[in-house]
Deep mutational scan, measured.
Amino acid sequence: GLTEEQKQEIREAFDLFDTDGSGTIDAKELKVAMRALGFEPKKEEIKKMISEIDKDGSGTIDFEEFLTMMTA
């Protein structure tokens, strides 16, 4: 499992990506986040990433899903 410290770091990354503070990361926010990390993702790639992570089919990534992605 994760230490509380690791969870906190992932939470901070999540909050950075969640620019509108909605508690979820949408495609637009993910794209901005990827760019910040030096990637140039295409729209299809973003969609694919979200569909792989987005277990509940909401079209957005919540913290639990993000946590799973970061620790996979």
Rank of each mutant, 00 (worst) to 15 (best):
T71P: 03
Q8T: 08
L2K: 04
F39V: 07
K43V: 12
L16F: 09
T71H: 06
I10P: 01
D56E: 09
A13K: 10
E5C: 14
K7W: 12
E4C: 13
P41N: 05
A27K: 10
T68M: 12
D15C: 12
Q6A: 06
G38V: 00
K31Y: 15
K48H: 11
L16D: 04
D56G: 07
D56Q: 10
G57Q: 08
A27L: 14
K42I: 08
T3Y: 04
K7S: 04
F17T: 04
E29S: 10
E44M: 05
D26Q: 11
I10D: 00
A27T: 13
K28A: 09
R35N: 13
S51N: 09
T71R: 03
G23Y: 02
L37T: 03
R11E: 01
D62A: 14
K43Q: 15
I25G: 00
A27D: 03
E4Q: 11
D20W: 03
K48S: 06
P41I: 14
M70N: 01
L67Q: 01
K55R: 09
E9Y: 11
L30G: 00
T60G: 05
A72L: 13
K55L: 08
T19H: 11
G1D: 05
K47V: 11
L30M: 06
A27M: 15
T60Q: 10
K42H: 11
E44N: 06
E40C: 15
A36H: 14
A36D: 06
M69K: 02
K43S: 15
F17Y: 10
F14L: 03
F63N: 01
S58I: 04
D18V: 06
S51G: 11
E9I: 13
M34L: 11
M49G: 02
E29C: 15
E9M: 15
I53R: 06
E44D: 10
D62Y: 07
A13S: 04
F63S: 01
G23M: 03
D20F: 05
E52I: 11
I10K: 01
E64G: 07
E52M: 14
M49F: 10
K43L: 14
L16N: 06
D18W: 05
T19G: 04
I25T: 01
E29V: 14
T68A: 14
A72Y: 13
L16V: 05
T68H: 12
E29W: 15
